[in-house]
């Protein structure tokens, strides 16, 4: 809306003074909803005078659709790792100028060498998360350590999971000893009977706010984003527990990237570097308690924040990221749609 108003104003003014100089610098940020704190945006504008237009999306696919339609020009996007892999393959990203990102040194070394962009040429990690098991310990007394422990007949109608075909398929693969990169036509058939047993037990599918049915007492356990679980643990201490499935867990890394066609490349670099500053990055963690890839910012967290098992899982867990699976995505979706329809009423 703001963007539209300023555009309309620009057109009006442009008509009046054909050679009017450009207005203040600006940056068009296209990022996940509920992911960038307003205080951080305001802080950047205050320091640099660069105005940020923040537009949001709810899935990587939605972002791709709008980005590639070319209807609007974005300077900074926030894709997850498997989407970066696809975007790099199709040459839609600009290489970053590391000389302009002195704070890049704050990024933990485990975030270098990831398969989607090993040298962080195109992307800078913003937040990292996992997908794991959350349990209402008042209702569920036995330990629930793996995917197979969640999907037991005794929990029928008490389970919430992400409404996400690829997630659920990879959980099934994990119980067969296969990683998330093992999505093939043959393996989809192997995983079908596993999921056919699981899905009838599920009460709620929700990717947007899976914590809600847990908070409302409509379900007792589930497999959700770590950030959602971290909020549950923070709000009702002692009631909820989170841990990573023993079969292996999915890790996602959301990054900052500059798409080709960006008009404010300079401002985009400035904003990335600003977000990498420990004091700024710490503010993001406070509001959205995912795993912060910024090791300097982690040092500024409170003991309670660092001790939240959902944000910072203890031990040395087996984590893997998603890979771009190309046209197989349609097969994954079809399998999930079919099993869901057959398990529903």
């Amino acid at each position: 809306m703001k963007r539209f108003t300023s555009l309309a104003l620009a057109v009006l003014l442009g008509g009046l003074f054909a050679a009017a100089p450009l207005a203040a610098e600006e940056l068009n940020l296209f990022a996940w909803s509920e992911y960038v704190p307003q205080s951080v945006l305001d802080g950047f504008t205050e320091e640099t005078g660069i105005e940020i237009h923040y537009e949001t999306y709810a899935s990587n696919e939605e972002m791709l659709a709008k980005l590639l339609s070319g209807a609007a020009s974005y300077d900074l996007i926030q894709p997850s790792e498997y989407t970066i892999e696809a975007l790099v393959k199709e040459k839609h990203l600009l290489p970053l100028d590391h000389a302009k990102l002195p704070n890049l040194k704050n990024v933990g070394k485990e975030y270098w060498g990831q398969p989607h962009d090993p040298k962080l040429v195109y992307s800078v990690p913003y937040m990292q998360g996992t997908v794991g098991i959350v349990v209402n310990t008042a209702k569920v007394k036995e330990p629930v350590l793996g995917y197979a422990d969640v999907f037991q007949n005794k929990y029928k109608g008490r389970i919430v999971v992400l409404d996400d075909a690829l997630e659920i398929v990879t959980w099934g693969l994990a119980t067969l000893g296969l990683g998330p990169d093992a999505v093939t036509k043959e393996n989809l058939e192997r995983v079908r009977p596993v999921l056919a047993k699981w899905l009838p037990l599920v009460k709620v599918y929700d990717s947007d706010s899976p914590k809600t049915p847990l908070l409302n007492g409509d379900v007792d356990l589930g497999i959700v984003w770590s950030g959602e679980a971290a909020i549950l643990i923070k709000e009702q201490p002692g009631k909820f527990a989170y841990h990573l499935p023993k079969e292996g867990a999915h890790m996602f890394i959301d990054n900052l990237c500059i798409p080709k066609g960006a008009e404010h490349v300079e401002a985009a670099h400035k904003f990335i570097d600003y977000l990498l500053r420990p004091d700024v990055s710490r503010k993001i963690s406070e509001e959205f308690p995912y795993t912060n890839p910024n090791v300097e910012a982690r040092k500024l967290l409170s003991d309670e924040e660092r001790g939240n098992a959902a944000s910072y899982p203890p031990g040395d867990p087996k984590l893997a990221t998603f890979r771009d699976i190309g046209p197989l995505a349609a097969d994954v979706d079809k399998l999930f749609t079919d099993l869901k329809a057959k398990s529903g009423s």
Binding site: A65, A329, D333
Partner: peptide, 28 residues
Amino acid sequence: DILGGGRVDMIGNIIENQFKGNARNWPF
């Protein structure tokens, strides 16, 4: 989605999924 817990997919959900979900299958 809101009252059915996402369990009862209807045509609308399937269409939405082709554009905004994993499937990324606009022609379908």
